[in-house]
Design a protein around this nucleic acid. Structure first.
Lengths: 263, 263
DNA sequence: TGCCCACAATAACATATGTTGCACATCCTT
DNA sequence: AAGGATGTGCAACATATGTTATTGTGGGCA
């Protein structure tokens, strides 16, 4: 119905090629997935609601989304962020009902792949399926690192760590420019991600800026000292599993270069 | 070499049948997986170390294990618990190196399935593979709920929630008796799971007991009032995705009955 | 028998983070 | 131009949780 979105370069493919080199056909197949039933949502709308029966696999083409849950008394926790190229859940349709919400952080475009379409495509392209499995494993690793964040890091470290992670993840999807990337997160949102109060996020966010580590202006984050930021966050990029092979080497791309910095 | 372990009833199969009814052949195939290269570890030994290249899929047959990570300065966080019947990571071998440790909590027996064996078996038994995918999705849901715990719940709620979760997970694996289950966790361990200090775990653990919600003696947890415990924890079992169909209905099994209690 | 070690318990105190409440921009709508 | 919504900044104060240190207990082991 609506015309498929063509992001500057396809974020999913770009990301998957951090894991493996895809053949021309695999790339075409991946592009096919991204062209399935593209739908747009406005910021703050829900793509998926708790209790629904999952029917499709969603791929974020553009914009940011998040997973979140509520406690009975209204406390809200964001338990995951989707950036361009991220897949909401391979094979979700095996579950009877969703245990959480997925909401749009910014306006987003998502491809919605039916079970049949998904199975047909991956059956024909085992290498692509393997790459999607890798994506799943990396997502699980990111969840684990978020547990580290909430369980063991201070407020300052959590916020700095979030910045490092998002910057590198966006870099892997080809969505950074030098040391800058979009930063659409409000402080209330950061509070729900980091498990802090908005007031404390405000205090701490300022501290990160005052240390000269980052700048934020017009919804754009610019990292002033990536090394220092990573150190302050106790950030180690290994959990992102962005290998060396098959990388796009943009002269201009700080995010990818940073990966070699530390083990 | 060593004789395959035969737990009272196979925890993996028992758990998978909460999702789907397996055919005789599927069950035999699952048992085959559990018989692969069985190895035993003593409590506190590591099964897997950070930085290693993952070669096999591990299935916990008996005993408890955990995933954990360190921050550079030594802070430790447990980011997951493996109970009997749990699978360490489907397809881990797609990753170049482990980003965390897996350690034995108690003495454990694990099956170690090579990539080839795994692929051969699941190729022949698509329904089993689907059940294993379900297992993976549930593990991701559990991770999300742990994020809720660390990000949004108080110390009291975290500990109560952990008890509810482990009791129900053990129940799904056929490892509970009435309202009791094994409880091998030291308070230091609980601290690393819940992101609290040992001192505060001690205080809070006592509070949970003094509220009359649970009792612990000789490494056995007995829940005195499951409903009240769940309420105090803001616990909702939906994220465990233990459906109604295909259940083993043991008269004696409080854990399964509890699932119907709330949505 | 005696020593050591792991684990639980407690006390006194320190502090990171939460809460309440308000002020002040900016931006959009009417 | 007014009004509301949304997001940031800030102050004063409250408290949940962390820290350090010590004690007691039981089990394993020489």
């Amino acid at each position: 119905m609506s015309a498929p979105v063509q992001p500057p370069s396809n974020a999913l493919i770009r990301k998957l090629e951090h894991y493996t080199r895809l053949s021309e056909e695999d790339r075409a197949a991946a592009l096919g997935l991204c062209g399935e039933r593209v739908q747009r949502f406005r910021a703050k709308d829900d793509l998926v609601r708790e209790g629904e029966a999952p029917r499709v696999v969603r791929i974020v083409l553009d914009g940011w989304a998040c997973r979140y849950k509520y406690l009975e008394d209204g406390r809200r926790q964001v338990v995951g962020l989707f950036l361009p190229g991220d897949i909401c859940d391979l094979n979700v349709f095996l579950l009877r009902e969703m245990d959480h919400f997925i909401g749009a952080v910014t306006s987003v475009a998502v491809a919605q792949v039916t079970r049949d379409a998904f199975e047909a495509l991956t059956l024909a392209h085992p290498r692509l399926l393997q790459a999607l499995w890798w994506e799943t494993l990396v997502n699980m690793a990111i969840q684990r690192e978020w547990l580290m964040n909430l369980g063991s890091r201070t407020a300052f470290e959590r916020i700095a760590h979030l910045m490092c992670e998002l910057y590198l993840r966006l870099g892997a999807a080809g969505r950074t420019q030098g040391l800058s990337c979009e930063w659409p997160l409000t402080q209330a949102m950061i509070a729900d991600i980091t498990g802090l109060s908005t007031v404390h996020v405000n205090r701490t966010f300022q501290a990160v800026r005052e240390e000269g580590l980052v700048e934020v202006r017009d919804r754009v984050l610019t990292i002033r000292d990536l090394d220092a930021l990573m150190q302050a966050a106790l950030f180690s990029p290994n959990y992102l599993h962005l290998g060396q092979e098959g990388r796009h080497l943009d002269a201009n791309d700080g995010a990818e270069a940073a990966l070699t910095g530390r083990g």
